[in-house]
């Protein structure tokens, strides 16, 4: 539902951006000494005489056809480049998720469970770790990790795109802040569930602590956690810009960054539009999973 206005807003923004740039494309094409008639016919041909709304409509039409324009520097089709790099970014994001989900939920769960215990050492330790994970800038941890593991210890290649050996370091860097966020959310969720009456009931009927935690608490925590994992997907896109650039991973993030440095506007806009699309689609998937996981919502859907 949000998809249409969202894409509309982003394309409008993209269009404003392209319009805000100095320079007249017609003048650039025909040269400074062209006569007014040639320029006039050129304007008609390119559609720059149609005014803002007309031009925007034309731009939308091109976008709908999948035409994102050509790079100012390489003159390559932006859409073709993006579709080639896109799988790499997704691979990196999923590799990061593979680390994030067990690490984040595990630590968050441990922290919440030990919050009620005698020694709160574990809780404090995990909380400090998760706040640190949120506080260390990705670009810095990427450089430090690269120095340690590839340049000093020579365990893994420092940069490049390829198999699992190239994937480990960038995925780990990307996973740090994501796991920290997830750990905090998991902790709050689990703490809330621990206060629920049904947990007390489960305890009072003599179930072991482990069984209560795994069956009664963890299962109910899954729903909000899945939502957060989906909603937090944006942070992978954020992180990918920096991480991919530093590790030379040939994905959308690095492409965005190159576009920014060279002020290659078609590339930047193409990447931002792709990012928005990914984000919208992931939110949609999260919604679907959420409905599937929560029987109450599923029932409502069937009824209504």
């Amino acid at each position: 539902m949000l998809l249409v206005p969202l894409m509309f807003a982003i394309t409008l923004f993209a269009f404003f951006l392209l319009k805000a740039l100095p320079g007249d494309p017609v003048l650039g094409l025909v040269g400074e000494r062209a006569d007014p008639e040639t320029m006039e016919s050129m304007r008609r041909e390119l559609g720059t005489d149609k005014g803002f709304v007309g031009q925007y409509a034309g731009y939308l039409k091109l976008l709908l056809k999948g035409d994102l324009g050509r790079s100012y520097y390489t003159n390559r089709d932006v859409l073709a480049d993006i579709s080639r790099k896109f799988p790499n970014t997704m691979l990196l994001a999923f590799a990061a998720m593979l680390v994030t989900v067990p690490l984040g939920t595990g630590l968050g769960f441990l922290s919440a469970v030990s919050a009620g215990g005698r020694s709160r050492f574990l809780e404090r330790l995990i909380d400090t770790l998760s706040i640190s994970g949120l506080s260390i800038p990705v670009f810095w941890s990427a450089i430090i990790i690269m120095m340690l593991f590839s340049l000093k210890l020579k365990l893994l290649p420092p940069s490049g795109t390829g198999g699992i050996r190239f994937l480990v370091l960038p995925a780990a860097v990307l996973a740090i802040p994501a796991a920290a966020t997830l750990a905090r959310v998991t902790k709050t969720t689990v703490l809330e569930i621990l206060r629920m009456p049904y947990v007390t009931t489960a305890r009072s009927k003599g179930l072991s602590a482990l069984r209560v935690q795994l069956v009664h608490v963890l299962r109910n925590a899954v729903i909000p956690i899945v939502t957060i994992i989906g909603l937090d997907f944006g942070s992978y896109l954020n992180g990918a810009v920096v991480t991919e650039t530093i590790f030379g991973w040939d994905g959308i993030g690095k492409f965005t960054m190159e576009g920014i440095i060279k002020r290659d506007y078609p590339v930047i806009m193409g990447c931002i539009i792709t990012g928005t699309l990914v984000f919208v689609v992931v939110n949609l998937i999260t919604d679907v999973i959420y409905h599937y996981l929560d029987p109450r919502i599923r029932l409502n859907v069937k009824k209504g």
Binding site: F13, G234, N238, G275, F279
Partner: peptide, 22 residues
């Protein structure tokens, strides 16, 4: 509130970058 929802859920760094390059 629709605008706010959009901003809150969008990857903020991408947005900040987009503004910074204009």
């Amino acid at each position: 509130m629709t605008v706010v929802d959009f901003f809150l859920s969008f990857p903020s760094l991408l947005l900040a970058i987009a503004i910074s390059i204009v």
